[in-house]
């Protein structure tokens, strides 16, 4: 049985994974916008190592890895990984709200389709050992 405490841990872990991914991607975009497009790969790596914004991104990535490992202790990989695709939605929204980018209607439709996909996956059992309790869908052949 997938206990209530584990469900909360799973929900908190997934929320944190999406939030950290959104923060990482948004900061990365802000930092990358200041790098000239004609610099060499080594110059790019030098910028990545020395700018504060990329150091913050590095720390966030480390926290993301730790959170991801804790998350995988309570959820299947084939459950957790697709759910984190919600970060495509939150990054797109953050691009509009924080960076002032514009969104096309096709992207809004894409967001709706991603959310529908994640909702479907959230209806399946988070982990194999929970299958008898919370798996409303049939097993694939």
């Amino acid at each position: 049985m997938f206990r209530q405490a584990l469900r909360w841990r799973l929900a908190a872990g997934l929320f944190l994974a999406v939030a950290l991914d959104t923060a990482t991607q948004t900061l990365w975009k802000i930092g990358a916008a200041d790098i000239a497009s004609d610099v060499s790969l080594w110059q790019t790596l030098d910028v990545l190592a020395n700018r504060t914004i990329f150091q913050v991104v590095g720390v966030l990535m480390l926290v993301k890895l730790v959170n991801w490992l804790k998350l995988l202790e309570v959820a299947d990989l084939s459950y957790a990984k697709p759910v984190t695709s919600l970060s495509y939605v939150t990054v797109a929204l953050a691009s509009v709200l924080v960076l002032g980018e514009r969104m096309r209607w096709q992207q809004v439709a894409g967001i709706a389709v991603v959310v529908a996909g994640v909702w479907l996956i959230s209806r399946t059992s988070p982990a194999d050992h929970d299958a008898p309790q919370a798996a409303p869908d049939a097993a694939a052949p």
Binding site: D76, L77, S78, Y79, P82, S85, Y88, V89, A92, R104, Q106, Q107, A109, G110, I111, A112, V113, V114, V115, A116, G117, V118, W119, L120, I121, R123, T124, D128, A131, A135, D137, A138, A139, A140
Partner: peptide, 28 residues
């Protein structure tokens, strides 16, 4: 490799996510 049970519903969800992500990034 991990023998996780991937149901039809989960595959359908992944298919929708693929389509949605493609729409989001294709028009970015």
């Amino acid at each position: 490799m991990l023998h996780e049970r991937v149901t039809r519903v989960r595959w359908l969800g992944i298919g929708l996510i693929l389509g949605g992500v493609t729409l989001i990034v294709a028009y970015a």
